[in-house]
Design a protein around this nucleic acid. Structure first.
Length: 306
DNA sequence: AAGCGCGTCAACCGCTGTTTA
DNA sequence: GTAAACAGCGGTTGACGCGCT
């Protein structure tokens, strides 16, 4: 049963790539495109395993990579995304066009960590360093960020949600049956209700302020979902039941979208997802351009070919 | 000039969820 | 239904370059 072995691991090169190997990989992908990493090395004449080829292409050879020279805006976006997502480098990279998860991870460890420390902030919790450890531990788990650790689904603090609502056009509801707070996005302008084909614009271009007249109750709430990022922004007044899944699995955030149980289905279906770029105040940034609306659902797109 | 320490980053490793035979 | 490989992720390692002594 099962598949046949992917490659002859005994006869593969390791370590730094040579220019010739790079060129072979580039030439091959230019002609045949990405994917099928298993058969790629053999067909491209490379003595590398497919995994190594994929990594080399994604992290180094892809033509759309920026490489180096992080801007101040990117710095701040990374910090904010990290405060929400934790060490989900691939998700963070998905919001930064031209950046790879590996590059961001390295940049975080070499630059941003230090930057936060000089600001007196804990790089992991994003809370002040002088905060009492016990308090910090308790509040970090309960209030600081989307917590994927220990397999728990993410949850946000009331203060985080209030903060996000201040920055965006959110309105909160309390679902008493589920004992969970649900965020509902409401576009500012009435015409945005009449323009359902442009929901993404309604979100991405909305300003951070909401006036009384904007709160028009006769209009239905428009639910936004985030396709490939689990921004199930509900908060548990007590933590969710932990799922026995591996916390660090990169695709778990996505797969959980389809792994919801009937018990929490309603809550999940109602949970609003948002454009993170807008959420963290980068509506006008380049990062926001990766947002895309599909079938009425709000989606984030990873950079090309990632 | 040599030795050392430190920072950077490409690449590897090991793990998990998904896919496929 | 099961087992094995694939794909992709986060964590870690080690080579390299640079600055300081």
């Amino acid at each position: 049963m099962g598949r046949s072995p992917c490659c002859e691991k005994a006869h593969t090169n390791k370590g730094a790539w040579t220019k010739e190997e790079d060129q072979r990989l580039i030439d091959y992908i230019r002609i045949h495109g990405e994917g099928c990493w298993r058969s790629l090395p053999k067909q491209a004449g490379l003595l590398r395993c497919g995994k190594s080829c994929r990594l080399r292409w994604i992290n180094y050879l892809r033509p759309d990579l920026k490489r180096g020279n992080f801007t101040e805006e990117e710095d701040e976006l990374i910090i904010k995304l990290h405060s929400l997502l934790g060490n989900k480098w691939s998700l963070i990279a998905g919001r930064l066009p031209g950046r790879t998860d590996n590059e961001i991870k390295n940049y975080w460890n070499t630059h941003i960590k230090r930057k936060l420390l000089t600001r007196g902030l804990d790089p992991q919790t994003h809370r002040p360093l002088n905060e009492a450890p016990a308090t910090a531990t308790a509040t970090a788990a309960a209030t600081s960020r989307l917590d994927f650790r220990n397999g728990s689904p993410p949850f946000l603090s009331v203060e985080k949600i209030n903060s996000l609502m201040d920055q965006t056009n959110f309105k909160n509801n309390t679902n008493s049956t589920n004992n969970k707070k649900i965020l509902l996005f409401k576009p500012k302008k009435e015409e945005e209700y009449n323009n359902n084909n442009n929901l993404e614009e309604a979100n991405c271009t909305s300003s951070g302020t909401t006036t009384e007249e904007d709160q028009q109750p006769q209009k239905p709430e428009i639910m936004y979902k985030c396709g490939d990022l689990n921004l199930d922004l509900s908060i548990g007044l007590e933590p969710f039941q932990s799922e026995p899944t591996r916390a660090s699995s990169g695709n778990s955030a996505e797969s959980k979208l389809t792994q919801r149980t009937p018990n929490n289905h309603d809550m999940f279906a109602q949970a609003a997802a948002v454009c993170l770029c807008c959420q963290v105040g980068f509506q006008s940034s380049e990062a926001c351009r990766s947002c895309q609306c599909t079938n009425g659902f709000y989606r984030f797109h990873r950079p090309l070919n990632s």
